[in-house]
């Protein structure tokens, strides 16, 4: 028994060494991915195990608290609706099972489209240069100065109901600028590097140089930028939804919060109505943040600690 603490310390040391050796075994990255996967799994399992008809108005008793709590009318939470119900008789668990993956989906899709646009424009600007570069730079710089929420509010107010995909497309129009600038800068510096010169000497085509020689080296930047964009997109989407814009008939976390605020959930002390969706959003953002920090450490060995 006397050598137990020593071996434990040794084991810890070994674990640290392993982590140093294989940067992908990064606790931040693993936790972040775990949190995000948790939301996806919640959505998948929920769809299989829970009665999703409970998201329709009036399908449940009103304003029931989560299990183990009482509401102001001294009603106890029941296991039929474990997370409680909202002011118009919808089950919160069902709302979250559908809404949380929806919010994540909008963020991922918007960011994916924005990134693709950014990669294409960034490479064009950096590689072709000249007029093309000037044009793309001016457009992206101008777009950066326009607050996206302002345009989106006007747009959605004018067109009313939109689908989730439509909303993702709209947001994507505002998240391509920073990847464009980032990639353009990287491409400009990489164009001068020895290995690109070597590839040119090897008779490589422009496409080969761009996608086989340069792009792989950009992967860490792209990942980082992608995750940051997902966060921005989700914030924008939730912002619109909380203002009552965005999809009207599809449950999302932001819309649930909007309805809770609108129905006076704050003064009636219906904390679960707005609290649980907010908690889900917090989990989502912490997950994204951890993934971003983790990727940073993976791609930048100097941040790694032994």
């Amino acid at each position: 028994m006397t050598d137990a603490p020593l071996t434990r310390a040794e084991r810890r040391q070994q674990r640290r060494m392993r982590r140093f050796d294989n940067p992908w075994i990064n606790p931040k990255l693993i936790w972040g991915i775990g949190l995000l996967l948790g939301i996806v799994i919640l959505g998948l399992l929920g769809r299989m195990l829970w009665n999703l008809d409970l998201v329709f108005t009036g399908s449940t008793p009103l304003k029931l608290p989560p299990v183990g709590f009482e509401n102001l009318r001294r009603q106890e939470g029941v296991w039929d609706y474990p997370l409680g119900t909202d002011g118009s008789g919808r089950d919160l668990l069902a709302l979250i099972v559908i809404g949380a993956p929806n919010s994540l989906f909008v963020g991922l899709l918007a960011s994916l489209i924005g990134m693709s646009l950014g990669i294409f424009l960034g490479f064009s600007a950096g590689f072709i240069g000249g007029r093309t570069d000037d044009f793309i730079r001016v457009i992206s710089d101008v777009m950066i100065t326009i607050p996206p929420l302002l345009i989106l509010v006007v747009f959605q107010a004018a067109y009313g109901d939109v689908s989730l995909t439509m909303m993702a497309l709209l947001i994507a129009a505002f998240v391509w600028q920073s990847p464009t600038r980032l990639i353009r800068a990287q491409v400009l510096s990489m164009k001068q590097s020895g290995y690109v010169q070597m590839a040119r000497l090897s008779g490589a085509s422009t496409m080969h140089i761009m996608f086989r020689e340069m792009l792989p080296n950009l992967v860490p930047y792209l990942f980082g930028s992608f995750i940051a964009n997902v966060t921005t997109s989700i914030v924008t989407a939730v912002g619109l939804e909380v203002l009552g814009l965005g999809p009207q008939r599809i449950p999302t976390l932001g819309r649930t919060i909007y309805e809770a605020i609108n129905a006076g959930a704050l003064i009636q002390n219906l904390w679960w109505w707005w609290g649980i969706p907010t908690l889900m959003l917090a989990v989502m953002f912490i997950g994204l943040l951890l993934v971003n920090l983790g990727l940073d450490e993976v791609s930048n060995p100097r941040l790694r600690k032994l």
Binding site: S193, G194, Y195, A199, P216, N217
Partner: peptide, 10 residues
Amino acid sequence: DPYACFNPFY
């Protein structure tokens, strides 16, 4: 520069 001539990815 022999350090720059190889693509670090490959």
